[in-house]
Simulated assay, not measured.
Amino acid sequence: MAIVAMVSAKGSPGVTTTALACALSWQGRTVLAECDPSGGSILSGYLSRLEIPPIGLLPLAAAALRDQLAETFDHQLVDLDAKNPGQRFVLPGINDTVQAGTLRPTWESLTKFFGQLEHRDSGYDVIADCGRLATSAPPWPLLFRADLLLLVVRVTTLRTIAPAAGAAEMLRRELTQYGQGPGGLALALIGDGPYGRRDIEQRLQLPAVLELPDDRRTAEMLSDGGGRLRGSERLLRAAASTEPAVRDAITRRRAHLEPTTSSGSSRA
Rank of each mutant, 00 (worst) to 15 (best):
S265H: 00
I94G: 05
C130D: 03
Q202M: 11
S48D: 15
G226T: 09
P59H: 10
S266L: 14
P163S: 03
E174H: 08
G39N: 11
D192S: 15
G131A: 00
L20E: 04
P54N: 06
L142T: 04
S41R: 09
G179A: 08
G93T: 05
S48K: 06
S38K: 13
A162L: 10
I200N: 06
A61Y: 05
I3T: 05
C35V: 13
V155S: 00
I52Y: 07
S136M: 14
M6G: 07
T251D: 13
V4I: 15
L204P: 11
F114T: 07
T72P: 05
R198S: 15
G28R: 07
I42Y: 04
K112I: 14
Q76L: 08
E220D: 15
P139K: 00
L47K: 00
E211D: 10
K112W: 06
T16P: 09
D248N: 04
C22Y: 00
I55R: 02
C22T: 09
F89V: 07
D67V: 12
L142C: 05
A165V: 11
G227L: 02
S265W: 01
L149I: 03
R104M: 13
S136N: 11
A62P: 00
A137H: 12
A245C: 01
G28Q: 10
T261Q: 10
H256R: 14
